[in-house]
């Protein structure tokens, strides 16, 4: 954080002193962008992780989305950042899914191939954690696992609509902008997603 702060200060120092207002504007814009990215990064990671079921890939797509928003769209009005960011994120998720699909097709023609290092299971993940979980934590973890599984099984557009509306808290217009579809389509996808999730997770209905 300190290194970043010094970088911002150095960058601002490059602006001539006669243009102090420009330096202030630049710093304000940078701070606003940082605050925005900090506010969305965890949710964005979870959305990507649910879609990709892979932590490292999810981190990569979130970083790509941050870089692209910062380098290309930071000059846009801040109220446009969220729909833009999630549209970029979803595009990156789709790119990864396509690459996986192509890769699996190619690899299916190579029966002699050994186990890929990336696909290899980390033994640490297989180790049993003997620490007892509190009952509430255990219940919550099980509920989250069931919810995540049910969201993963949704069609792509329903998954997007559900996560952006319900999890990220975007309104219909923002969600429509992020999904590049009409507000009516967002409502339809969201409604169907809720129906599908309810039918799978009946015990959530209290």
């Amino acid at each position: 954080m300190a290194a970043f702060a010094s970088l911002v200060t150095q960058t601002a120092d490059l602006i001539p002193s006669g243009k102090a207002h420009l330096r202030d504007t630049t710093q304000d814009a940078t701070r606003a962008l940082e605050a925005f990215l900090a506010s969305v990064e965890r949710k964005a990671f979870r959305i990507a992780q649910i879609a990709l079921r892979h932590e490292a890939d999810a981190l990569d797509v979130v970083q790509d989305a941050m870089m692209q928003l910062s380098s290309r769209y930071a000059s846009r009005p801040p109220q446009e950042w969220k729909p833009l960011f999630y549209r970029i994120l979803e595009n990156r998720v789709r790119d990864v899914q396509r690459r996986r699909s192509v890769r699996s097709r190619v690899m299916s023609y190579m029966p002699w191939r050994g186990e890929d290092e990336e696909d290899a299971v980390d033994p640490v993940d297989l180790a049993v954690d003997h620490a007892p979980l509190p009952p509430a934590q255990l219940e919550s973890d099980e509920a989250m696992a069931a919810l995540e599984q049910a969201i993963t099984e949704l069609p792509t557009r329903q998954r997007q609509a559900f996560l952006l509306r319900n999890f990220e808290g975007m309104d219909v217009a923002e969600t429509a902008a992020a999904m590049k579809c009409s507000a009516g389509s967002v409502k339809t996808h969201y409604f169907r997603a809720l129906q599908a999730l309810r039918s799978k997770l009946g015990e959530f209905r209290t």
Partner: peptide, 10 residues
């Protein structure tokens, strides 16, 4: 990742 994105912009 966030800091890298902001530094790239700078």
């Amino acid at each position: 990742a966030r800091h890298a994105a902001l530094a790239a912009r700078s």
